[in-house]
């Protein structure tokens, strides 16, 4: 499966034409699917939960393509936004009454330990544990900036937060991760 086979303009045109909509949809997922999968996985951590979020993301992209009013450049942000919302939805299902997704840190850390391959580096595992100590919104902002190397403006489109808030979130996250690693190394 070729990656970056189509430009965003080409994908957009295909999606907006009823004759090529289905082809465009599959091409879109083929092109951004891998990055999108890891984005979801970093939020929900669990393998099965990731599959659920992938399915729901796919359904919502397909269902809402006609309602998408953005331009070709915003296509990536739009699908990442859907994926983020669906991932949070999956996490919300795991919370109990009066619990928020931020309270799932311990559960997700446990899951990370269970699902993490035994040969993975200790520092990498520690790094992931540190990430799970962050509040969910901060963690998402950090992941998009650090792993996906997105500009703050694009992260703002995905999360609906202001650029200034995201910059603060990122720097707080970095500080917290550094202190956690120092403490546990």
């Amino acid at each position: 499966m070729a990656v970056n086979k189509y430009s965003d303009d080409e994908l957009y045109s295909m999606l907006k034409d009823p004759k090529t909509k289905e082809k465009g949809f599959k091409a879109l997922l083929a092109q951004y699917g891998r990055g999108l999968y890891w984005h979801i996985r970093r939020i929900v951590i669990g393998h099965d939960d990731t599959e659920d979020a992938v399915q729901e993301t796919s359904i919502n992209i397909w269902k809402n393509i006609d309602a998408f009013r953005g331009n070709a450049e915003q296509l990536k942000s739009w699908i990442y936004r859907i994926a983020t919302n669906e991932s949070l939805q999956v996490l919300r299902k795991r919370t109990t009454f009066l619990q928020s997704v931020d309270d799932l840190g311990e559960v997700l850390t446990e899951e990370l330990t269970t699902e993490n391959p035994l040969d993975s580096e200790a520092t990498e595992r520690l790094f992931q544990e540190a990430l799970l100590k962050l509040p969910t919104q901060q963690r998402i902002a950090f992941n998009l900036r650090y792993y996906d190397e997105m500009p703050y403006e694009q992260i703002a489109e995905i999360t609906g937060k202001k650029v200034g808030v995201l910059k603060t979130n990122y720097h707080y996250a970095v500080d917290k991760i550094k202190s956690y690693l120092k403490e546990h190394a």
Partner: peptide
């Protein structure tokens, strides 16, 4: 490391997962 860590799913698995999800959605 950024794309494969901390889990071991390979690209074929991910590509197939999205294709199955796309078919189901349609």
């Amino acid at each position: 490391m950024k794309t494969t860590m901390p889990f071991n799913e390979n690209n074929d698995y991910i590509d197939n997962l999205w294709m199955r999800a796309a078919e189901k959605a349609i």
